[in-house]
């Protein structure tokens, strides 16, 4: 069953429309990436999903039921601006967040023990205490004693401690060093494999392509593209093909000839040091024609269709819409 379904959701603050007729479905065991430039309305959309604010029009359903406050127990929400109680101990914070999300104290204590071990946070509590988590509460570190990275890890743990069915993360990787970012990424993938639905916003395109099953690109509050990550990329395929010839076995005049070719889009050096020529193919000038052209010029070391990256789609779409 679909975890979260948005149907023509709109939200306005004063005269500014921050979400315009947005629809999306988030399925269990999938990761949904929310993309958009600053001020596109990503946070507002995530807040509506997390029951913090309500849409002015449209409907949001959680597991088939109209979304209400009580569903928040089954969600984990981590806002972009992180914050915890400075003078509260690590374990106290975890217990507090687990309890307000419906876990009993004993359930929470079991989860805390397990997660702190996994996230290598056990040294944040005095290990000499062997009388159970309850007695460790007073001995665990306070937030103000933790580094920024450690506090980020704690914040993430507070979000997932109650085993939510839906995880809503606003820029989850910002502030993490590469090691901890990988750790969080692995946990997100684990949770996904266990059936948790994840929706997150990010500016990091590498995360989108490697993590997300589905994406929604929004600009000025309205969706530009939506769908499976690969399908979205494919939908933007413009018939471009990349061709690279071995530099040592190339007909001497071929590169110069290609630069004047009417179908050439651009030429650039790839990381291996070979010149790559990108051609526009269509019915008149097919990929077969291009392949033949290449093979006549020398030994082909690279020939592939150029499917635009999410980054390219993002930049081009947003720029063209903003120029309109």
């Amino acid at each position: 069953m679909t975890i979260l379904e948005l149907d023509s959701v709109s939200k306005t603050y004063g005269s500014q429309v921050v979400s315009k007729e947005i629809s999306m479905r988030i399925e269990p065991g999938t990761i949904h990436g929310l993309l958009g430039p600053n001020g596109a309305g990503k946070t507002t959309l995530l807040r509506m999903m997390a029951t913090i604010t309500k849409p002015d029009s449209g409907h949001i359903c959680f597991l088939g039921e109209p979304l209400v406050d009580v569903h928040a127990h089954q969600m984990g929400y981590m806002p972009e601006e992180r914050g915890l109680y400075k003078r509260m101990s690590v374990v106290d914070q975890l217990l507090f967040f687990a309890e307000i999300r419906g876990l009993s104290r004993s359930e929470a204590q079991g989860e805390i023990r397990q997660w702190m071990h996994r996230l290598q946070m056990t040294d944040w509590i005095n290990s000499s205490s062997t009388q159970g988590i309850k007695n460790r509460v007073k001995q665990s570190k306070k937030l103000e004693e933790l580094s920024k990275g450690m506090a980020q890890k704690l914040q993430f743990l507070c979000t997932i401690i109650h085993k939510p069915k839906l995880l809503i993360l606003d820029e989850p990787f910002s502030g993490f060093d590469p090691v901890n970012a990988d750790l969080i990424r692995d946990i997100i993938l684990d949770l996904k494999n266990q059936g948790t639905a994840v929706v997150f916003s990010t500016h990091r395109m590498d995360n989108i392509e490697s993590l997300c099953d589905d994406i929604t690109l929004i600009n000025q509050g309205a969706p530009l593209f939506q769908g499976k990550t690969m399908e979205v990329r494919r939908s933007q395929f413009a018939g471009h093909y990349d061709l690279a010839i071995d530099e040592d076995q190339v007909e001497p005049e071929a590169p110069q000839r290609w630069l004047q070719h009417s179908r050439l889009v651009r030429a650039f050096k790839n990381p291996e040091g070979n010149w790559v020529h990108r051609f526009q193919c269509d019915a008149e000038f097919s990929s077969q024609h291009l392949l033949k052209l290449g093979s006549e010029a020398g030994r082909i070391v690279h020939f592939a269709e150029h499917i635009p990256s999410i980054h390219d789609i993002f930049v081009q779409s947003v720029q063209s819409q903003n120029h309109e």
Binding site: H73, Y77, P79, R82, G83, K86
Partner: peptide
């Protein structure tokens, strides 16, 4: 303090 600490957004996602 809860507002300036930004903790409030996390809390009100679970508590009215």
């Amino acid at each position: 303090e809860e507002k300036t600490n930004r903790i409030v957004e996390v809390i009100i996602s679970s508590v009215r």
